[in-house]
């Protein structure tokens, strides 16, 4: 028996006349890494944006039992549902350290914040080396690490990651993947990962969904996805 932490039911999103998400339903269980794969424009980001409350939607999204349409953005963040967007949205002229502190701005427990700072610097030594550097001047990989670090500073229960590997060098992708595994295994962090990089998602996710043109085409466990002919041919590129 597992606990559902994030429950998306019959999610519909419209952009003008275009029906971007067509009745998507997903249940994320506590402690798992859930991968959502699919081509560019399929609706992965739209789904995450709806969960974060950035766009209007029809349907129900429950986090830890609470209907998210009834709570403010700050309440969502304070309850531990944290979103790391595809273009990272860092504060370009704040230093690495200042960006990280912004993630913890609504937390009162100074000791816990300090512990999390140490944890982030431990997890990403590159950030530790660049504490005083402005976010804008860092490489794409470092910015991605900082975006994940800032999200971790908000003390997440569930971390939503949109395309964390986009445009990054393979060695950096490996670092990020390792960090996610550590966080999942050692901190019990639940991760909802949206990725075009299916190989990366397949490597790390416990369960997955495939979204194409706004609909879930396939959902299953890591093993089921790994063995699925269509996924292998269309998305992983191994035959």
């Amino acid at each position: 028996m597992t606990d559902t932490i994030l429950d998306i039911q019959d999610l519909n999103v419209y952009y003008g006349k275009s029906h971007a998400l067509q009745g998507v339903s997903l249940s994320i269980e506590q402690g798992e890494i859930y991968g959502v794969i699919g081509p560019n424009g399929a609706g992965k980001t739209t789904m995450l944006n709806a969960v974060a409350g950035f766009i209007d939607y029809e349907g129900t999204i429950r986090y830890d039992g609470t209907d998210l349409s009834t709570v403010s953005g700050r309440e969502i963040v304070e309850s531990g549902l944290i979103y790391c967007t595809e273009n990272r949205d860092l504060f370009p002229f704040f230093s690495v350290h200042e960006n990280l502190l912004m993630g913890a701005q609504f937390r009162d427990d100074r000791d816990a914040v300090q512990d999390d700072l140490d944890m982030v610097y431990d997890l990403f030594p590159r950030l530790d080396e660049r504490r005083e550097q402005e976010a804008e001047t860092m490489s794409g990989g470092e910015q991605q690490m900082l975006a994940v670090g800032r999200a971790l500073m908000s003390d997440p229960e569930v971390l939503m990651l949109d395309e964390p590997t986009l445009g990054l060098a393979p060695v950096i992708i490996e670092d990020i993947g390792e960090a996610l595994t550590t966080l999942n295994e050692e901190e019990g962090l639940t991760i909802l990962l949206a990725e075009q990089n299916s190989t990366f998602a397949l490597r790390h996710a416990d369960r997955l969904s495939l979204i194409e043109t706004g609909e879930i085409e396939l959902a299953g466990t890591h093993e089921e996805f790994h063995d699925n002919e269509y996924v292998r041919e269309a998305y992983v590129g191994v035959h």
């Binding site: 953005g73 700050r74 790391c84 949205d89 370009p92 912004m102 993630g103 609504f106």
Partner: peptide
Amino acid sequence: TDDGRSILAASMSERGAQLTGVD
């Protein structure tokens, strides 16, 4: 101050500010 810094932060990235819980 945290309160004031959120103003500066929002001026750099509104979406970033929202992601950290700023209204």
